[in-house]
Write a protein that binds this DNA or RNA. Structure first.
Lengths: 186, 186, 186, 186
DNA sequence: GATGAATGAGCCTTCATTCAT
DNA sequence: TATGAATGAAGGCTCATTCAT
């Protein structure tokens, strides 16, 4: 019946379960059962369990990578930074489950080939946002902005209010932090 | 020679390994081997693997609990908040491995009886730091302050500079955020 | 471009891999990958994995079977035996990979329908080479001659010298052994 | 009931099954079932499947190793060689199942850490038995002697006669071969 | 206070094979 | 002539846990 989309379905279910229970605690059996296929079928589409995860990263982080590439061609003005944060916030929102997963499974990611890749991206984002010779506290501010965007949405789950509103509040705080760190060095 | 302190040694090794590799990826065999005892010995001192973790939390988060208890008796002035953050920062620093662990193993903690306990503490801290009717963005600021303190130290690992200096920079940013959120509602 | 010869190519690759790694350790996936076809394609040409092996035997042991048939029509003189050994040695050399495979995968062959077939041939060879009522030691000599021819080439891999020279040395020893066993019973 | 000898029992059953069916075709489940324990119990006593095999080699080839060590201290006379063969034949007989296994599972052994070890031993035996500058055919004779001793017993299974008698016949042929190769170089 | 021995459940992975297209 | 997709069985291995000693 459902033909040709099994690979996609595996990714969907896997992401859902990975985000919900963590990578290690999600077994291939579980994924397979959810899809009503056998474990072996998963192996037709992906070489290993880690491969499923890798494919999710590759598919879902592309917007970020494109954003970074674009940003690297822009001048380091406050306006650019603001634009970067705005777009980053959107990219984050559209891949929320993956980023929830990332945030909650760092110990696992650390030694899952992908860890490095991800850390690199963070550092490149940081470079786009902070001034080259920023004081320590200002570096912290930029880091904090990033951190808040990443973790913010999930932590605000208990707080009342519409998700989009929350996203904007987070964005506002991030922008504040980056602005404070942006006293141009003359 | 090492008499009667096995329990303590188990905790030490366990914390080190949990923090380094994550909870799920650290097996009791590994802990036992590090201590040159048998797995069964661990079971003399702790009822389950989770129990080891619980004991670590109980022993290492007491300063935080005491801090919170004390803080709840104080007036919600900016000075108090500043004092809370200062003490919190110190408490955090003195139990750094545990908090690194917490930060990196959230997916695991979520369904490990302890998760709730920990989340509760975070929310109580938040209540101490934010104004009762704070605007959304100000709530985010306070959350961000907490977040930054928790994650900051580890993320700054790649950055140059003396640890104590970094801690103070983080504290400064946290204080800023909380101050901004503190425009007293009259 | 390679049209219609897939069957042959499968056999070639299979023999190579079987000889190199053993039958059990060579998977159909591996064979298929080497040929840049799918596993399913193998099943178009052969009913089972074992079938591939069987086909190799059938194709490569024909010279031996013909030799045996011819030999059975000859008188049991020493000259005949010498001739048999000479031809056997040549047949062996021209199907070296298969015989390397046989020699190294006996445990596997034992319960692979083919085992019997092969053992039968060995026994028939033995009958051609030894005297009907030979003493135990003389039977051993003939067995040893066969054995040496089979295993000899591979074992001499580490020894210096040109392959053809080695083959002749092996043949010489085999002939010696058979001669010693040939004190005609009157 | 049976206490403390499980390790030994595992080795016994494993050797029996390895020899009978081959290494790859013998599963740990099978071994465990034969012993009426769980697979996991095997892992208490041995780190891996290969480890079981290694332990068998270590325990059963000691006599050979001692023989070789002793032989290396002896003069290279024909008498010594005869003595070496005699003892080797006995050592072989007392570890027959292992050597049957070796002979029939060479493809497997080749890439099982142990392969090298075993090949080394063969080469050292060869060095003890052949003259340093022996002609190619004489080297083949010595190899053939070794080969015959190794494989002889199993191949003679179909032949009538008492096992000990067969062993002696094999030994006789081996001795003959080595003698022929021993025309002392003056 | 600790060990030796074992278990049951489960994990990731691989394999030969099938079948509709 | 082949492929794409899937299966069922099995394999080696690891884990937290138990319990008699």
């Amino acid at each position: 019946m459902t033909r040709g989309n099994t690979r996609q379905r595996i990714q969907d279910v896997a992401l859902e379960l990975f985000a919900e229970q963590g990578y290690e605690k999600t077994s291939l059996r579980e994924i397979a059962e959810n899809l009503e296929v056998t474990k072996a079928a998963l192996y037709y589409h992906f070489k290993t369990k880690e491969d499923i995860l890798i494919s999710l990263f590759q598919d879902l982080t592309r917007p970020m990578d494109e954003l970074i590439e674009w940003a690297q061609t822009q001048p380091h003005t406050l306006e650019t930074k603001q634009e970067i944060l705005r777009r980053y916030s959107e990219a984050l929102a559209s891949a929320a489950p993956l980023f929830r997963f990332i945030q909650e499974n760092q110990a696992t990611l650390r030694d899952l080939s992908i860890g490095e890749t991800f850390k690199d991206r963070m550092l490149r984002m940081l470079d786009l946002i902070k001034e080259p010779e920023a004081a320590l506290a200002d570096q912290v501010r930029c880091l904090s902005a990033l951190l808040t965007m990443h973790a913010g949405m999930f932590l605000l789950k208990d707080v009342e209010g519409d998700p989009e509103e929350k996203r904007l509040a987070v964005l506002e705080v991030a922008f504040d932090l980056v602005s404070q760190a942006h006293h141009v060095t003359r």
